[in-house]
Nucleic acid binder design. Sequence first.
DNA 1: TATTGATGCGGGAACGTTCCCGCACAAGGT
DNA 2: ACCTTGTGCGGGAACGTTCCCGCATCAATA
Lengths: 381, 381
Amino acid sequence: MTSGSRHGGQRSEPTPRVRLVDVAREAGLSKTTVSAALNDTGRLSPAVREKARETARRMGYRPNATARQLRAGRAKLIGYVVGEAADAPSVFLESPYFARLTGATAATALRRGYALVLLPSGSLQSEWADLPLDAVVVTDPGADDRIVDDVLAAGIPVFSDRSVEGRQGAHWVDVDIDSAVRSVLDHFREQGARRPVLVVPDSTTRFHAEVFAAHREWCAEHGLPERVVRAGEPGNGPVVRAVETALAGGPVADGDPAAGGDRPGGGDRPDALLVVAEASPPLVLEAARRHGYDVPGDLLLVCVSEDATAEHTEPPVTTLSLRPEAIAEAGIDHLVKVLEHGSREPSGTLVPTRLDVRASSVRRHDQVVSGGSWPGPRRLA
Amino acid sequence: MTSGSRHGGQRSEPTPRVRLVDVAREAGLSKTTVSAALNDTGRLSPAVREKARETARRMGYRPNATARQLRAGRAKLIGYVVGEAADAPSVFLESPYFARLTGATAATALRRGYALVLLPSGSLQSEWADLPLDAVVVTDPGADDRIVDDVLAAGIPVFSDRSVEGRQGAHWVDVDIDSAVRSVLDHFREQGARRPVLVVPDSTTRFHAEVFAAHREWCAEHGLPERVVRAGEPGNGPVVRAVETALAGGPVADGDPAAGGDRPGGGDRPDALLVVAEASPPLVLEAARRHGYDVPGDLLLVCVSEDATAEHTEPPVTTLSLRPEAIAEAGIDHLVKVLEHGSREPSGTLVPTRLDVRASSVRRHDQVVSGGSWPGPRRLA
DNA sequence: TATTGATGCGGGAACGTTCCCGCACAAGGT
DNA sequence: ACCTTGTGCGGGAACGTTCCCGCATCAATA
């Protein structure tokens, strides 16, 4: 069918992949010309350009990425580390948030032409040292984590959360947790709640620390006592127990055990609950019921969670979504910009959260009842 | 401190990375010699070898992985796809099993010198087409999944589960689910259970299909009716509901609704439960209690789960571990062997599971009580 | 008809490694 | 004295791209 050029014929060998020169020879052009044609660069006549493309297509040419990388000096590889180095041995990813963040980050990176390489938190420096990484993404580094320092020391740019702000070669993307916490607490207040309680895990993560700080500030501004219950660790079990603590004995004032004077006493039972721990909304709801609360009658409930089941409980649970997909996209876009336009300046991006207001946090008389399909949640910034 | 050689001094530039020739020049040797010294090949005098190494170390030389790859023809990159393409949009990884499998696979691969590239299930062919992948790992491909065909068509070896057995260029690692199911059912039988029920999600995954088949065979061999309850989908909610169905109304004979004559009637309540769905053991245990069962008095319970909380419930729950770390290691070892010793023959590895027998599946009089520390679970192959 | 400028294409170097050779030199045998 | 064998090291090609050039060719202008 085609002319000449059977320079070996097909053996049963692994297939000696077709190169640029092969296409060039077949098309009667030079590799330079074919390269220009395929990359849409250079000055070529439309006829030649098309001829080159057609030939390449016909021969099933696929460029050798490694050679490209070598020439370009960048490998288009991004390392991806998830936190919790010391504590949990590689039991990351289990939370819906991290799972979705990871998936979305990989997908977005891929669309931008970068591949995400998984770097389990236990990995030794020597194991990734000879990977041609253009950058490393570190999600939620623990306070004591060496990984950021190691990577920066190796001369590789780091993208992480706001905890790396200001460091040379480091960039950050973070969720606007301060606004988020405030918006929930304001929402509670609007709905008439006066004794909101915060349930948050006791971790070294910046995220949780910032939640706690935002809550503290808001309480101070509104002259309310801080009601916080700390869960020992993340995960459904401990968090549900913490919720039960909050609902049973009433909140514990953080920091000062002596301030617990107003603790038990039925009249001080919480009237709103903000659970910042990725607990399963149905489980939290059920815990509330077990303790005799009617939601949203006696207790307004908001969970920070990506769990889709929140929409299908009775009542549906208001959630604060951290929008992992949005964070992933903002992060990768930021990263690509820095990598390809080479600004070495430290820089950051703040991503807004989304509050999906559902029945669990709205006083009854406010409730919109529509037949058939759900009206969809009200959305606040 | 060191002699001479300031051939530019340090600018504020990105750092023009030190190459092999730089080391060679500094050491007064040729790049060939330095390369041989660092790679421990060739014929070199100990003195020269040491000199080269020392100089490289001093100059902070790190080889350019891309150049190496180009020369070697292999990029040491492995694609990693997780299943559920159509159904759930990138909500993989949430289960402890997949999370741990993923982490362990990445870690093992890294130790063997390969990097794992995350390929979200939605990714287009065009997105990974120009990655220099040496192989692609596909975990639990759905029955209708195109990904395996696409990758094979691109001439890239595939490593997946047993569903790819026999295909050219495909290799597999799988868990010995047949033995596993049998060992659990035998265990139930030894403990005196006569009406075991299987709870399994309704999915297109090979794993679940094989569980179902093994159960069917075992029942046939032992002359017992098949008692199966299918959960609509994986995830704690649906599975717990399925468990409740199993415990409340009694089991449903699969396939033939007319065979349900012996269904309700208190005397036919199940006396053993095998939950193959990664449900949280505490949740399942609680569901049993709600329905008035005493575990292990009235009901023996075994969960297929990697959830560590199983050890800490009261009673501790017997689990069948699929040993994700073992699968990861076996899989990567197999992969490396195929890649580096080039056998194109289709081949596979079967990995045994591990039954951690705890109190939830042992009749009281069998129970070993020891003071202080736990005696550790009995382990069956 | 020369001179300029633009256009179309190809030659060759470079990216940083590894590896096949070949050369120089020393030691041992005849 | 020669030839052989072995050891220690380096020169240069190759991996497959991209990109800087330079060389033709041709139209438009002086």
